[in-house]
Simulated scan of single mutants.
Amino acid sequence: MPAMRQVALLIETSRGFGRGLLRGVAQYCRENSNWATHFRPHGLGDACLDWISDWRGDGILVRTENERIADAVRRPGVPVVELLGKLKHQQQVPMVRVNDRSIAKIAAQHLLDRGFHNFGCCGYRIGNYPFLDIRVGAFRQYIEEAGYPCSMLHVYDLYVGKSRLSWERQQARIAEWVKQLPKPVGVMAVTDDRAFDILGACRMIGALVPDEVALIGVDNDECIGQLTIPPLTSIDPDPPRIGYRAAALLDSLMDGDPPPSEIIYIEPRGLVKRQSTDVLAVDDVAVSEAIRYIRENACHAIHVSDVLAHVRSSRVTLETGMKRAIGRTIHQEIHRVRIETARQLLAATNLPVKKIAVDSGFRTVQYLTRVFTEAVGIAPARYRRQSRIEP
């Protein structure tokens, strides 16, 4: 029997993302590995490093928040896999993380689909988290490519390290920014933490969520999700899959394999819709009602004629209004909702593909497979495999 590998886990337990990473690492250990893990619960950036100074092990998985942690894990001959990438020099270390551009695209598309023409994005001070800067920049790019302006706000992170702003001053700054945004507005917060701050600022100035400010966060943190009023729409970056892939990479490095030449990016799991974006920013009553009817009934085998009968409008008038509001025809919106439903069912359930085809409005597996492959680029079965934890 091969010797047990001693692996240190410097991953925080104070946030849902870190706990998700640890779940993925744990699954890898159960399935593949002869690891003995060394771990102490801690917050991001608050790791107690007394034990690791004398630790003699074989590999390290780490979220490097500061130079103190970077110095502690820097040791000759011990492979390290990075899971945060905050420090520039740590970006040369083998790294696994979520695809931030994909997160931005999901957020932008969701708010565009809600019919918004005004947008904002709130992140941290530029340079604090390089990959979150990419997330913010990509969101702005997608919105501007759609033909709309995007207001930006960058403020310090009060929860990590030393901040130059008190909580009251930061909230006042966010509130002033929200107040000057043209309404209704769709806003992406770069994390759920930042979304929590924005919701507080909205309450300070009396801005209604989602009617005036539709807000989407990132991380799908279960604790923040329970604290927010209204419940927060968020993007699930799939931390268990990131943790699983990072563990697999560390195992290969401990085997002596060469490190990857580039960062390994994991696609986010998808959008978790809640009340904070449950609104349509469409002035045309008929168009708004048509979109809502489609999103509630598209999977029930409805046709364009059913939508026209429901809103009592001519096809030319309604098509023109929908193209102006969301950039799609009636048929295209029905099609989009069905594809999105199939994606969610494939990723989040173990339902047979035949049942998913029926539940998403495609009726047959053959029809679902043809349309899904055309829209997504891969077949439903392969999409399901890629959506699950795997090396």
Rank of each mutant, 00 (worst) to 15 (best):
H303R: 15
M188D: 03
L22V: 03
D219L: 00
V376I: 14
R5D: 04
R30N: 10
N99L: 08
T233G: 07
R363G: 11
E296S: 13
I291R: 01
G137F: 11
G200I: 06
T37E: 05
K273A: 12
P79C: 03
N350G: 15
G270T: 08
R382K: 15
Y367F: 12
V285I: 15
W35K: 01
V358L: 11
C121P: 00
V187D: 01
S252Y: 10
G18K: 03
V25A: 00
P41N: 06
C299H: 07
T369H: 10
V365A: 12
P94R: 01
F372D: 03
Q226D: 14
L215C: 13
I126V: 15
P260R: 02
S313K: 10
N128K: 13
A379C: 13
R336D: 03
I356G: 00
P380D: 05
D255G: 03
E390N: 10
G270Y: 08
I69W: 04
T320F: 06
V353N: 01
V73I: 15
I134H: 09
G243N: 04
K105F: 11
G20F: 01
F139G: 02
E289Y: 06
G85D: 08
S234L: 07
H154G: 09
V187R: 00
T317M: 14
G377L: 06
A195E: 01
E374D: 10
V98L: 09
G147L: 11
L181G: 10
A3Y: 13
C29M: 10
I334F: 02
M95G: 10
F131E: 10
V98P: 00
T191W: 04
R370Q: 14
R194D: 01
I330N: 03
A207P: 08
L111H: 06
G57Q: 01
R363M: 12
